[in-house]
Design a protein around this nucleic acid. Structure first.
Length: 460
RNA sequence: UCCCCAGUAGCUCAGUCGGUAGAGCAGGUGGCUGUUAACCACCGUGUCCGUGGUUCGAGUCCGCGCUGGGGAGCCA
């Protein structure tokens, strides 16, 4: 008999069908002449309750089934006589696959997130983490669907990069040189002897690649791992995370913001539509305001706020900030939080930032002091998207690179696109983990990625 | 990297004024019951994070270190 997943069994609308299924025991309750076994196979949040009578073969062994054990069951679907579940399975055959010893760390009670992080290899077997990672999977699909439906092409940008400065923070070095290699030059590793013949790192962004392809295929996006060697110790940062980076040709900042807003709205609607059961768990146990937040994210008009206007609002707020607000200074977390959580109480897109605090590739505005940058700020998570219209004018781009001390030689291929058929284009980066935090209400990035990499932490 | 907080049984925590550690859950045994984090009775459990100090005496006070968490910066 073919195995059926529990999610399919529970979709039944008539009793009487015979099923064969496998899973892990979540809990067992014994009665005089039979035993209730709740089984979960990870296909959905719900367990299926199995009624195992003492007339079954190996019933003595069935009574030894502990939480975490694995079992295969053949039985008939019947309407449950108890409360709490519609269906249950009257077992005809129960075959024990393995018994988990009583040292199994997951118990039938609530554990702290901190403890579960120490057993990251087992935590997806809990309701909460199972739900989080099913949602993560569904949202990955939704990302592809959103872009594909709009005619975007999916680009695999490289993980190893030779660009010595992608401009987004500290990088992890990639090398095949032995640590004690004698091939040193002026006390530094002699990269000419290295695998690629030059210094290489893990990528901090697929943007530059995406620009090249946007200027060829039109609309493209990347979706892959990204690495930052920053010594960041916060609940919002990881050294390895996944980023979605669309890049659009013939697209200005306004259209860029429209796509960013539509993207977040699509993803939050998608998860409400496709993952109601898993979402309900988070609304119940993690964040009581989650559904209201999601409705807000999915259906409110996002505020468009020039940086200068943001500074004005903050200065007039009457609120004492730890850091002063002033043109030319970047907005601090406390400022972003005030705008999105207190003042507007919904997502806010701040744009046209001072050029001195932004990277070389952002397009200089006509005022000469701001660039066409935008950040999407959401309540609770903060910055979830950062993007810009890219500088397409060769002369302006070159002088910006000079100002910032970047070598044009290393970017000859990047500059080529401004030489040959340059066009206005724009793009942004969305932190995928931050999106999952937003839609689940989970407060720590370490709990939305299977095996988190953070400073001093890479056990799994 | 900086600031703040925490570390006690397998897990979640309590521990008074400095006087030699205890509860729930989990586990074991028995009972009961179409049960729902089942219930009832009984049973065991400790490098009190490590290290140095103060003290007659330290889980408790002080120094240093380690680990974890929160906030800040960096950003997605």
């Amino acid at each position: 008999m073919k195995r059926t997943k529990i999610i399919e069994i529970l979709k039944s609308d008539v009793p009487g069908d015979k099923f064969f299924f496998k899973g892990w025991v979540r809990t067992r309750r014994d009665s005089k002449t039979f035993s209730f076994i709740e089984i979960n196979d990870g296909s959905c949040l719900k367990n299926i309750q199995v009624v195992a009578d003492d007339t079954l073969e190996h019933y003595e062994d069935i009574k030894k089934l502990t939480t975490g054990s694995a079992i295969a069951v053949t039985g008939t679907l019947i309407e449950s006589r108890g409360k709490g579940q519609k269906w249950e399975i009257q077992a005809e055959k129960a075959e024990i696959i393995s018994i988990a010893p009583d040292t199994y760390p997951l118990q039938k009670k609530r554990h702290t997130d901190e403890f579960l992080r120490t057993i990251a290899h087992l935590r997806p077997r809990t309701n909460k983490y199972g739900a989080a990672f099913r949602i993560r999977s569904e949202l990955s699909y939704a990302v592809h669907k959103f872009f594909r439906d709009r005619g975007f092409r999916y680009l695999h940008s490289p993980i190893i990069t030779g660009s010595d400065c992608e401009g987004a923070g500290e990088m992890f070095r990639v090398t095949t040189l032995a640590p004690d290699s004698p091939s040193k030059k002026d006390g530094k590793p002699d990269y000419a002897q290295d695998f690629f013949g030059k210094e290489t790192n893990l990528t901090v962004s697929g943007q530059l690649s995406a620009e090249m392809f946007a200027l060829s295929l039109g609309d493209v996006y990347t979706f892959g791992p990204t690495f930052r060697a920053e010594n960041s110790n916060t609940r919002r940062h990881a050294a390895e995370f996944w980023m979605v980076e669309p890049e659009m040709a013939f697209c200005d900042l306004t259209e860029n913001m429209e796509i960013a807003e539509a993207f977040i709205k699509y993803l939050s609607s998608y998860v409400m539509e496709e993952c109601p059961e898993d979402l309900e768990l988070f609304a119940k146990f993690v964040d009581k305001t989650l559904m209201r937040t999601l409705e807000n994210i999915a259906s409110s008009e996002y505020v468009r706020l020039p940086y200068k206007a943001a500074v004005k609002i903050l200065n007039r707020s009457g609120k004492k900030f730890d850091y002063p607000v002033d043109f030319g200074k970047d907005l601090q977390s406390e400022h972003e939080r005030h705008l999105t959580e207190k003042h507007f109480k919904k997502p806010v897109i701040v744009y046209d930032y001072p050029k001195d605090i932004k990277p070389f590739y952002m397009r200089v505005n006509d005022d000469g002091e701001t660039v066409a940058a935008m950040d999407v700020l959401v309540p609770g998570v903060g910055e979830i998207i950062g993007g810009s219209q890219r500088e397409e004018r060769l002369d302006v781009l070159k002088s910006r690179m000079n100002e910032m001390g970047l070598s044009q030689e290393n970017y000859w291929w990047y500059l080529d696109t401004r030489k040959f058929g340059t066009v206005p284009h724009s793009g942004f980066g969305l932190g995928f983990e931050r999106l999952i935090m937003l839609v689940t209400g989970i407060r720590n990035i370490r709990d939305v990625i299977p095996f988190p990499r953070t400073p001093n932490s890479i056990e799994f």
